[in-house]
Nucleic acid binder design. Structure first.
Lengths: 218, 218
DNA sequence: ATCATTATTTTGATTAATCAAAATAATGAT
DNA sequence: ATCATTATTTTGATTAATCAAAATAATGAT
């Protein structure tokens, strides 16, 4: 079994190596985990001894196969708990992450599989992110940022490219939720902000930054 | 905040002092926590410094008011999680304790209060034990061991005085579940075993030991 | 090629939690 | 009152996780 601290390191290595081709650096990990580089070096040695990561001094760190499998199981647990909190306990999508950070460390495959069934085996979490299945496989989906959606082509909001609670609260406030139909009516060249149509004749204007982080499916 | 280890000590002190008038001894705590007396002495000093227990060397240990309040909140979390596992995820009543031992350490009042509401604010857990409310108050109830129930007086199974999984599985197998109506038809003087009636004309014979640990309400 | 900057690791320490073995205090029997 | 037994604490150590400060390696600019 693995300690919560170890699991958090594995998640951080997974996240960092997912968005770059190079191995995760010590400082990047320290930043992600809100700790010091010295602590990271230390833990990487332990994780390496456990066979969860591939690490050699000053070479950065990548996940081993078992490490990646662990990371995917943690992602599965995290996202299923988020779904539970959102669907069953009525937490908002900006509140679920923090709690799931604790719940994901509960150790029981049986528990998580029953939770999965209880929730109806959801494919996506409250942010639209895919939930790995018991084998660690992720569903994929055709999606693009709202900023890249052609004019006059209706689409559905399916995800967000940014999980900052303030952003999620803003989207809630604007009525831009998962499943909402949107259509770009007009793009203002000056700042690339968009005028968009929502159901029931509602309209909104959103900044380019928002449009970049709002993901839609055709 | 308190570590899971600290919380487990607080629970153990609560449980031991609940069933005796003397303070909890070091060895009793070591036994309950599956650790050594040396570790217990050490931790009691720390908990005392935190104001959670009253402890002086060789005097045993009792909970302070804040310690007792913490113990009741842990009991609340434990029993609400057990109820969730039993009611929503279809775990059997002999399986829920182990998992609740992990879940009770999740830190969030908001989570536990929403879970409470989601479950319909249950007063009793799957074993019939009372669930403290947010203020730490426990419901009480008129109950007695089946062994003390007079002949020919129908009663309802409301709890168990023993949480050993093997005992709980046995009760399940015998159809002796919470809410089941029972009536003592006959007591065999030789070993005090009982012949009892269940609904639909079913009958069972149970040992004195079982009858002592099966709690019924009139 | 050299040197300043940056990234990383090492060293030496700390805290929480744990234990085995030794020391000490309390208890109960005589 | 004394002594053996039992309960508890102390002592000295360990492991996981952490850090500040010092040391070292890598990088990029000249």
């Amino acid at each position: 079994m693995h300690s919560p601290a170890e699991e958090n390191y594995i998640k951080a290595v997974y996240q960092i190596t997912a968005r770059q081709t190079e191995p995760a650096g010590t400082n990047a990990l320290a930043e992600a985990l809100q700790t010091t580089a010295a602590s990271v070096t230390d833990m990487l040695k332990r994780l390496s001894a456990k066979g969860l990561v591939v690490y050699a001094a000053r070479q950065g760190c990548t996940l081993s196969d078992t490490g990646r499998q662990l990371a995917l199981q943690l992602l599965r647990k995290h996202r299923l708990w988020e779904t539970f909190l959102f669907e069953k306990l009525d937490f908002s999508w900006d509140e679920v992450h923090e709690l799931a950070e604790q719940l994901e460390h509960i150790q029981s495959d049986e528990l998580i599989n029953r939770l999965d069934v209880f929730l109806g085996c959801p494919q996506f979490d409250p942010h639209g992110d895919p939930i790995p299945n018991a084998a660690g496989q992720l569903a994929s989906r055709r999606q693009l940022p709202l900023a890249s959606l052609p004019l006059c082509q209706p689409a559905i909001i399916v995800g967000v490219g940014m999980h900052d609670p303030a952003f999620l609260q803003y989207l809630d406030y604007m009525g831009l939720r998962l499943g909402t139909q949107v259509e770009v009516l007009e793009c203002f060249g000056y700042d690339l902000s968009l005028r968009i149509a929502l159901p029931q004749g509602e309209e909104r204007v959103v900044s380019h930054k928002v449009a970049q982080h709002l993901l839609v499916g055709a």
